[in-house]
Design a protein around this nucleic acid. Sequence first.
DNA 1: ACCTGAACACCGTTCAAGT
DNA 2: ACCTGAACACCGTTCAAGT
Lengths: 182, 182
Amino acid sequence: MAAPATAPLTRDRIVSAALSLTKAAGEPPSMRTLAGELSVTPGALYRHVAGQADLVALMIDEVMEHVEMPDEATEPDPWRRIRAHVHSLTKTLDAYPGLDRLIAHHGDSSNAARVRQQWTMDQLRTAGLNRRDAGRAYGALDIYWLGSRQRTQRSVATFLFGLDRLLEGLRAHSRNSSATSG
Amino acid sequence: MAAPATAPLTRDRIVSAALSLTKAAGEPPSMRTLAGELSVTPGALYRHVAGQADLVALMIDEVMEHVEMPDEATEPDPWRRIRAHVHSLTKTLDAYPGLDRLIAHHGDSSNAARVRQQWTMDQLRTAGLNRRDAGRAYGALDIYWLGSRQRTQRSVATFLFGLDRLLEGLRAHSRNSSATSG
DNA sequence: ACCTGAACACCGTTCAAGT
DNA sequence: ACCTGAACACCGTTCAAGT
């Protein structure tokens, strides 16, 4: 599988190499290290990628595209769909240590991120939350999974315990507000 | 208030200047910038501080010492004490933009952090959680406030909404487990 | 069109040498 | 004892010059 002579430098090869190095080192490579891995000069990267920030965004896109969003057939309860989705986020990021910190720094304004947000808010509305509460609930869940990736990693048990408490609180809130208007 | 001639370089002056620059710039200064602000050469800093990581730890210590931990006289309900404490964390960090990210990266293994952890777990146990659940609940709260500081800042309303849902879920959990053993 | 080589303006850290 | 000056080994990014 050795590349014959010199494979053409493309955006995909750059992103792929960056992710591979991240996986191996536990943190994203510098532009210079990345260039070296691709047997190229640092300046060459800038013909295919606008800069480090752009590259980071592409890496995040690539990884986050594989997060699960179960449908009603697979999982009839919307709360369990949300739980599976958030759990999937952490499992996905476990494969690329250091990428979670990049997401925290850089944010994620990709299309995929907007799709995930819309999907989550749809589930929350299906579960009975009004539009304002669904927006806030999405924010709270986003805060929670992101926080779980920072600092010294917490145990999975702690993460799931808190996630279940948060979902339970949201469900109770949804019951109360629908009771008020019923 | 101009310093006469040359004030002696001390650890306190270094930490104080670093925090002041962080407040002004929205992000922590480099060692070189910090040295320049103190009218000194970068190497001089290393006589008083082990390095950048050490300095960051000292900055975190200094700031986090002012987080509120209300007592029973001020606030009789343990859940409200916890809520006030977590809210105080965010208010404290609002004064030093950029420091929250440092905490996420660096962690906080100071004595003050251990005191806060112990205090929070005491409140949770008072509120009825057993030791294991109190540990996990502390972890979940830690995840939540830390996550709220990352990326583009969420609104206060979203933060408080999620915090209240999480606390509600924890309270419900404590009621269920005490009912089981009662 | 694409890449190299070299430069610019930065980093954190160390340490002989000065005072 | 404390600080300076200079160096070492890095960064991200730009851009004339080569092919």
